[in-house]
Design a protein around this nucleic acid. Structure first.
Length: 410
RNA sequence: GGUGGGAUAGUCAAGUGGCCAACGACGGCAGACUGUAAAUCUGCUCCCUAUGGGUUCAGAGGUUCGACUCCUCUUCCCACCA
């Protein structure tokens, strides 16, 4: 009897471990994670998992949710999440980038960003098992002496080992001295929070390990396990998903956009997204993959299912269904979308100007070019005259396949 | 602190007195094609009611009929030396 319970426990722990390991790029100190899980299953002991977020932009995208979903898994198995907001680092500004020093955010901006951040995050995380912490609560109080003590834990040679520093150093890209402080500060967060596990992207490896090193140096009697998630590629399938590259799917994107963006990824990239973003089990995904290979399943159908799942997660099943119908209407059958922005003017307008005013062209020069190339339609009919004047009436303006506007001329 | 090198469009990167709104690559946009907003191929890619005009090559001056190109100063970056 007793042995049976033991067996059941081991099974559960293994199951949990498997789920935790899914999609990870690297796990350091797996044993520790196993021990934490064991303590949870046997004694109901909870533990802490830390993840840091930078509040510089108010929008989360799917790249962030890879981490969030992993955190949610941990919550399922007894973890309290330390949702760390890098409020200190944001206020001093990160000098990464060339000549432009990043704008220093005001306290109000940060607070504003964070509230939108957390509402988005709680679409995935369990709020009751999450502690939101701000690192300026402790980093802000450190003295110069504390900082120097902290800095003495790291040699310049070691710092230069860090991949992006060494790359930048070799390619003569500037590195500000303050940037050297970042890994230390992030590592110190783990000391202060006494984190049991920290998760982050593979690009964070150095910083994550710094947490381990500093926890040892400050002798807090534990060293965090580190779990690294791969960086999610953006829509282009090459570069990492980021807002500045414009290849992202935002958590708060409209359902139609979200659905369409997922469908626009390549068939290869789709599997990556499945692994990192879908709630389907790896076995289920393998079945889909096999199906596509045998040609018993159409890749478009598989991709649509993924688009549906993701859209439904951040909106609702209904919204996802609508997005799907809409997409088919607009793209497969090339009909016009349901919702189109409407504009009106009070006098005859020149077509190029009208397109700019309706925000579907950036400049009249661009509008002329698109007209010349046959990219502009009025009421579904291609036009070729870039001098056309729109007189009284209602028009459906279209640029390319995706940009629509209704214009009423009075 | 000294010496030398550099800053060009969204990014990277050519251009070293007129042929420069500025090669090329990437990105972006449009067209064709397609299961897709994928892939591929083609065209376009500073602004302006345009066979013309305006504003650009870190910033400010100067030389010249004419400057991204030459000179001076300023700002920022890099390397070597200290």
């Amino acid at each position: 009897m007793h042995i049976k319970i033991k067996e059941r426990e081991i099974e559960m722990i293994n199951e949990a471990l498997k789920e935790i390991q899914r999609g990870t790029a690297e796990v350091i100190d797996e044993e520790r994670i196993e021990k934490l899980l064991k303590a949870y299953f046997e004694e109901g002991k909870t533990y802490t998992v830390k993840a840091g977020f930078d509040p510089t932009a108010p929008d989360l995208h799917l790249g962030h949710t890879v981490l969030l979903q992993k955190l949610a898994i941990f919550q399922k198995y007894g973890a309290r999440v330390q949702f760390l907001i890098g409020s200190f680092t944001a206020t001093i500004g990160d000098p990464t980038g060339k000549n432009i020093t990043r704008k220093v955010l005001s306290k109000e901006d940060i607070v504003k960003n964070i509230s939108s951040y957390t509402t988005q995050a709680f679409k995935i995380l369990d709020e009751s098992k999450t502690d939101i912490v701000y690192n300026d609560d402790w980093l802000g109080k450190m003295s110069a002496a504390d900082m120097i003590t902290l800095a003495s834990n790291l040699t310049v040679a070691r710092m230069l080992e860090r991949d992006d520093f060494s790359k930048r150093f070799k390619s003569n890209t500037p590195i500000a001295t303050s940037e050297f402080m970042y890994p230390l500060l992030q590592g110190y967060d783990s000391v202060y929070l006494k984190s049991d596990v920290e998760i982050g992207g593979t690009d964070q490896k150095f910083n994550l390990l710094m947490g381990r090193q500093l926890q040892k140096a400050y002798d807090i009697k534990k060293q965090q396990a580190v779990l690294m998630m791969p960086i999610l590629e953006g829509l282009d399938g090459v570069q990492k998903m980021s807002k500045s590259l414009g290849n992202y799917i935002g958590v708060s994107d409209a359902p139609n956009d979200m659905f369409g963006k997922v469908l626009s990824i390549s068939d290869d990239l789709m599997w990556r997204y499945y692994e990192l973003l879908s709630n389907k089990s790896l076995d289920e995904i393998a079945v889909l993959q096999q199906g596509v290979q045998d040609q018993t399943l159409h890749p478009k159908k598989v991709k649509e299912d993924l688009a549906f799942e993701i859209t439904a997660r951040f909106h609702s099943a209904d919204a996802a269904q609508n997005a799907k119908t809409e997409f088919e209407k607009v793209h497969a059958k090339s009909q016009i979308p349901t919702d189109i922005a409407e504009f009106s003017v009070n006098e005859t307008v020149w077509i190029c100007k009208a397109l700019v005013d309706c925000a579907i062209e950036p400049s009249t020069s661009q509008a002329r070019r698109d007209i010349k190339q046959g990219g502009v339609k009025i009421d579904q009919i291609k036009i070729s005259d870039d001098k056309l004047q729109l007189t009284t009436g209602e028009y459906l303006l279209q640029v390319g396949k995706r940009k629509f506007a209704k214009l009423k001329v009075n």
